[in-house]
Simulated assay, not measured.
Amino acid sequence: MIRVLVCDDQALIRAGFVTVFGLQPDLDVVGEASDGETAVREARRLQPDVVVMDIRMPLLDGIEATRRLAGPGVAAPIKVLVVTTFNLDKYVYEALRAGASGFLLKDAQPTELIEGIRTVARGESLLAPAVTRGLVGKFGDRVRPSTPGVSDRLAALTPREVEVFRLIAEGLSNAEIAGRLVIGQETVKTYVSRILTKLDLRDRVQAVILAYQTGLVTAQP
Protein backbone atom coordinates (compact mmCIF):
# COMPACT_ATOMS: atom_id res chain seq x y z
CA MET A 1 0.00 0.00 0.00
CA ILE A 2 1.11 3.54 -0.79
CA ARG A 3 0.35 5.78 2.17
CA VAL A 4 -0.78 9.25 1.07
CA LEU A 5 -1.21 12.55 2.92
CA VAL A 6 -3.47 15.07 1.16
CA CYS A 7 -2.70 18.76 1.75
CA ASP A 8 -4.97 21.46 0.29
CA ASP A 9 -6.75 24.42 1.86
CA GLN A 10 -9.93 23.83 -0.16
CA ALA A 11 -12.14 21.28 1.58
CA LEU A 12 -13.92 20.30 -1.64
CA ILE A 13 -10.67 19.50 -3.42
CA ARG A 14 -9.37 17.53 -0.44
CA ALA A 15 -12.59 15.54 -0.33
CA GLY A 16 -12.36 14.84 -4.05
CA PHE A 17 -8.78 13.62 -3.77
CA VAL A 18 -9.59 11.44 -0.78
CA THR A 19 -12.53 9.88 -2.60
CA VAL A 20 -10.58 9.19 -5.80
CA PHE A 21 -7.56 7.80 -3.98
CA GLY A 22 -9.71 5.70 -1.68
CA LEU A 23 -11.07 3.78 -4.66
CA GLN A 24 -7.62 2.49 -5.54
CA PRO A 25 -6.58 -0.85 -4.04
CA ASP A 26 -2.96 0.26 -3.61
CA LEU A 27 -3.53 3.76 -2.15
CA ASP A 28 -4.29 4.50 1.50
CA VAL A 29 -5.07 8.09 2.56
CA VAL A 30 -3.61 8.29 6.05
CA GLY A 31 -4.33 11.95 6.73
CA GLU A 32 -5.35 15.41 5.53
CA ALA A 33 -4.11 18.95 6.10
CA SER A 34 -5.67 22.32 5.28
CA ASP A 35 -2.60 24.49 5.83
CA GLY A 36 1.16 24.22 5.47
CA GLU A 37 2.00 23.99 9.16
CA THR A 38 -0.41 21.11 9.63
CA ALA A 39 0.96 19.46 6.49
CA VAL A 40 4.49 19.47 7.90
CA ARG A 41 3.40 18.30 11.34
CA GLU A 42 1.20 15.51 10.02
CA ALA A 43 3.77 14.35 7.47
CA ARG A 44 6.40 14.04 10.17
CA ARG A 45 4.00 12.22 12.45
CA LEU A 46 2.44 9.87 9.90
CA GLN A 47 5.47 9.34 7.64
CA PRO A 48 3.44 8.84 4.43
CA ASP A 49 5.02 7.51 1.27
CA VAL A 50 3.79 10.52 -0.72
CA VAL A 51 2.51 13.96 0.27
CA VAL A 52 0.14 15.52 -2.26
CA MET A 53 0.82 19.22 -1.72
CA ASP A 54 -0.94 22.36 -2.85
CA ILE A 55 1.17 25.51 -3.26
CA ARG A 56 -0.99 28.31 -1.91
CA MET A 57 -2.08 27.49 1.62
CA PRO A 58 -2.48 29.55 4.82
CA LEU A 59 0.05 29.77 7.67
CA LEU A 60 2.79 28.17 5.58
CA ASP A 61 2.77 27.88 1.80
CA GLY A 62 3.36 24.61 0.00
CA ILE A 63 6.82 25.63 -1.16
CA GLU A 64 8.15 26.15 2.34
CA ALA A 65 6.29 23.07 3.59
CA THR A 66 7.96 21.06 0.82
CA ARG A 67 11.36 22.47 1.73
CA ARG A 68 10.91 21.40 5.34
CA LEU A 69 9.89 17.90 4.33
CA ALA A 70 12.10 17.19 1.34
CA GLY A 71 14.59 20.00 0.93
CA PRO A 72 18.37 20.09 1.24
CA GLY A 73 19.58 19.00 4.65
CA VAL A 74 16.45 17.04 5.58
CA ALA A 75 17.70 13.85 7.23
CA ALA A 76 14.79 11.66 6.17
CA PRO A 77 13.09 13.40 3.22
CA ILE A 78 9.49 12.60 2.42
CA LYS A 79 8.40 12.45 -1.22
CA VAL A 80 6.22 15.38 -2.24
CA LEU A 81 4.02 15.64 -5.31
CA VAL A 82 2.87 19.20 -5.94
CA VAL A 83 -0.60 19.49 -7.45
CA THR A 84 -1.29 23.07 -8.41
CA THR A 85 -3.45 25.35 -10.52
CA PHE A 86 -0.38 27.31 -11.59
CA ASN A 87 0.92 26.12 -14.95
CA LEU A 88 4.69 26.42 -15.36
CA ASP A 89 5.09 29.50 -13.20
CA LYS A 90 7.64 30.48 -10.58
CA TYR A 91 5.69 28.77 -7.81
CA VAL A 92 6.00 25.39 -9.45
CA TYR A 93 9.68 25.89 -10.20
CA GLU A 94 10.44 26.97 -6.64
CA ALA A 95 8.57 23.94 -5.30
CA LEU A 96 10.73 21.63 -7.40
CA ARG A 97 13.87 23.37 -6.22
CA ALA A 98 12.58 23.01 -2.66
CA GLY A 99 12.62 19.23 -3.07
CA ALA A 100 9.35 18.19 -4.68
CA SER A 101 9.61 15.06 -6.81
CA GLY A 102 7.32 16.51 -9.46
CA PHE A 103 4.06 18.25 -10.15
CA LEU A 104 0.71 17.94 -11.83
CA LEU A 105 -2.03 20.44 -12.52
CA LYS A 106 -5.32 20.21 -10.70
CA ASP A 107 -7.17 19.76 -13.97
CA ALA A 108 -5.28 16.52 -14.64
CA GLN A 109 -7.37 13.42 -15.17
CA PRO A 110 -7.83 11.25 -12.05
CA THR A 111 -5.88 8.46 -13.74
CA GLU A 112 -2.94 10.85 -14.27
CA LEU A 113 -2.95 11.91 -10.64
CA ILE A 114 -3.16 8.33 -9.39
CA GLU A 115 -0.33 7.21 -11.65
CA GLY A 116 1.62 10.28 -10.57
CA ILE A 117 1.44 9.19 -6.95
CA ARG A 118 2.61 5.71 -7.89
CA THR A 119 5.47 7.15 -9.92
CA VAL A 120 6.69 9.36 -7.09
CA ALA A 121 6.29 6.51 -4.59
CA ARG A 122 8.63 4.40 -6.75
CA GLY A 123 11.29 7.06 -6.32
CA GLU A 124 10.93 8.48 -9.82
CA SER A 125 10.33 12.10 -10.76
CA LEU A 126 7.09 13.22 -12.33
CA LEU A 127 7.90 15.66 -15.08
CA ALA A 128 6.71 14.80 -18.54
CA PRO A 129 9.37 15.58 -21.15
CA ALA A 130 7.44 18.48 -22.67
CA VAL A 131 6.76 19.89 -19.22
CA THR A 132 10.43 19.61 -18.27
CA ARG A 133 11.48 21.55 -21.35
CA GLY A 134 8.88 24.23 -20.76
CA LEU A 135 9.45 24.59 -17.05
CA VAL A 136 13.21 24.69 -16.83
CA GLY A 137 13.58 26.37 -20.20
CA LYS A 138 11.40 29.21 -19.00
CA PHE A 139 13.09 29.59 -15.65
CA GLY A 140 16.61 28.43 -16.52
CA ASP A 141 17.98 31.90 -15.75
CA ARG A 142 16.98 31.38 -12.12
CA VAL A 143 19.38 28.47 -11.69
CA ARG A 144 22.65 29.92 -12.90
CA PRO A 145 25.66 28.77 -10.84
CA SER A 146 25.65 30.50 -7.47
CA THR A 147 29.17 29.43 -6.44
CA PRO A 148 32.40 28.91 -8.40
CA GLY A 149 33.26 25.38 -9.44
CA VAL A 150 29.73 23.99 -9.58
CA SER A 151 30.48 22.55 -13.05
CA ASP A 152 33.30 20.50 -11.52
CA ARG A 153 30.65 18.05 -10.33
CA LEU A 154 30.40 16.76 -13.88
CA ALA A 155 34.02 15.59 -13.81
CA ALA A 156 32.84 12.36 -12.19
CA LEU A 157 30.89 11.43 -15.33
CA THR A 158 32.20 9.57 -18.36
CA PRO A 159 31.67 11.20 -21.79
CA ARG A 160 28.77 8.82 -22.45
CA GLU A 161 27.18 9.65 -19.10
CA VAL A 162 27.50 13.36 -19.87
CA GLU A 163 25.72 12.71 -23.16
CA VAL A 164 22.88 10.91 -21.38
CA PHE A 165 22.78 13.61 -18.70
CA ARG A 166 22.34 16.29 -21.37
CA LEU A 167 19.44 14.39 -22.92
CA ILE A 168 17.79 13.97 -19.52
CA ALA A 169 18.06 17.72 -19.02
CA GLU A 170 16.50 18.34 -22.43
CA GLY A 171 13.44 16.45 -21.21
CA LEU A 172 13.79 13.18 -23.09
CA SER A 173 12.29 10.04 -21.64
CA ASN A 174 14.31 6.82 -21.30
CA ALA A 175 12.71 5.50 -24.47
CA GLU A 176 13.56 8.68 -26.38
CA ILE A 177 17.15 8.61 -25.11
CA ALA A 178 17.45 4.98 -26.17
CA GLY A 179 16.22 5.86 -29.64
CA ARG A 180 18.52 8.87 -29.92
CA LEU A 181 21.63 6.93 -28.85
CA VAL A 182 20.57 3.63 -30.44
CA ILE A 183 20.90 1.65 -27.22
CA GLY A 184 18.48 -0.42 -25.14
CA GLN A 185 16.15 1.12 -22.56
CA GLU A 186 17.67 -1.04 -19.82
CA THR A 187 21.05 0.40 -20.70
CA VAL A 188 19.61 3.90 -20.42
CA LYS A 189 18.16 3.05 -17.00
CA THR A 190 21.61 1.91 -15.89
CA TYR A 191 23.19 5.14 -17.11
CA VAL A 192 20.54 7.23 -15.36
CA SER A 193 21.06 5.35 -12.10
CA ARG A 194 24.84 5.83 -12.31
CA ILE A 195 24.47 9.53 -13.04
CA LEU A 196 22.16 10.11 -10.08
CA THR A 197 24.49 8.16 -7.79
CA LYS A 198 27.68 9.86 -8.93
CA LEU A 199 26.17 13.34 -8.66
CA ASP A 200 24.35 12.57 -5.40
CA LEU A 201 20.98 13.44 -6.89
CA ARG A 202 17.66 12.09 -5.72
CA ASP A 203 15.79 12.06 -9.03
CA ARG A 204 15.55 13.42 -12.57
CA VAL A 205 14.10 16.70 -11.36
CA GLN A 206 17.28 17.48 -9.45
CA ALA A 207 19.29 16.30 -12.45
CA VAL A 208 17.55 18.78 -14.73
CA ILE A 209 18.15 21.65 -12.32
CA LEU A 210 21.83 20.73 -11.89
CA ALA A 211 22.30 20.58 -15.65
CA TYR A 212 21.17 24.20 -15.86
CA GLN A 213 23.27 25.18 -12.85
CA THR A 214 26.40 23.76 -14.45
CA GLY A 215 25.64 25.28 -17.83
CA LEU A 216 25.49 21.87 -19.51
CA VAL A 217 22.26 23.04 -21.08
CA THR A 218 20.89 26.56 -21.31
CA ALA A 219 17.45 28.11 -21.41
CA GLN A 220 16.03 28.86 -24.82
CA PRO A 221 14.98 32.46 -25.43
Rank of each mutant, 00 (worst) to 15 (best):
R122L: 07
V164D: 05
G134C: 01
L126E: 06
D152E: 14
P159G: 11
L154G: 02
T132E: 14
R142T: 09
R160E: 13
A130M: 14
V162G: 07
V143I: 12
P159K: 11
E163T: 11
G123L: 07
L127H: 02
K138P: 00
V162D: 03
S125W: 06
V131C: 02
V131S: 04
G149K: 12
G134V: 00
V143A: 13
R133S: 15
A155G: 01
P148A: 10
L157D: 05
V162Q: 13
L135I: 02
R160K: 13
V162R: 15
R153Y: 04
V136F: 15
G137M: 05
E161Q: 15
V131A: 11
V143K: 05
T132D: 09
D141K: 15
V150A: 11
V143R: 05
R153L: 15
V164K: 05
G140P: 05
G140Y: 03
V150C: 04
P129I: 02
R142W: 09
V131T: 15
T132A: 15
S146K: 14
R160C: 00
S151A: 15
P159Y: 10
T158V: 07
P148N: 05
A156Q: 10
S151H: 13
L157T: 09
S125N: 11
G137A: 08
V136E: 00
V131Y: 00
V150T: 15
R153Q: 12
E161H: 10
L154W: 08
L157P: 07
R133G: 09
T132S: 15
T158P: 09
T147C: 04
V143Q: 02
L157W: 10
P148F: 06
A156T: 14
E163C: 05
R144Q: 13
S125D: 12
T147Y: 10
K138M: 12
E163H: 09
R142S: 08
R160S: 13
L154S: 02
G140F: 09
P145G: 06
A130Q: 14
T158F: 09
K138N: 08
V164H: 05
R122W: 01
L126T: 09
R142H: 08
R153V: 07
R153C: 03
V136H: 09
A156L: 14
D141R: 14
R160M: 13
D141M: 12
V162C: 12
D141I: 12
T158I: 12
E124K: 15
L135Y: 00
R122H: 06
R144Y: 03
T132P: 11
F139H: 13
A128L: 12
L126D: 08
L127R: 01
A128E: 12
K138A: 04
R133D: 10
L154H: 04
E124T: 04
P159I: 05
V131D: 06
R142Y: 13
D141F: 14
V136N: 02
E124M: 10
E124R: 15
E161F: 11
R133Q: 15
V136K: 00
G140V: 04
S125V: 11
R144W: 00
E163L: 13
L135M: 13
G123N: 06
F139W: 13
E124A: 15
V131Q: 03
T147S: 11
P159F: 11
R144D: 02
K138S: 11
L135A: 01
V162P: 00
T147G: 01
T132G: 08
G137V: 06
R160L: 13
P145T: 03
E124D: 15
V136I: 14
R142D: 11
G137T: 10
L126K: 04
V136Q: 00
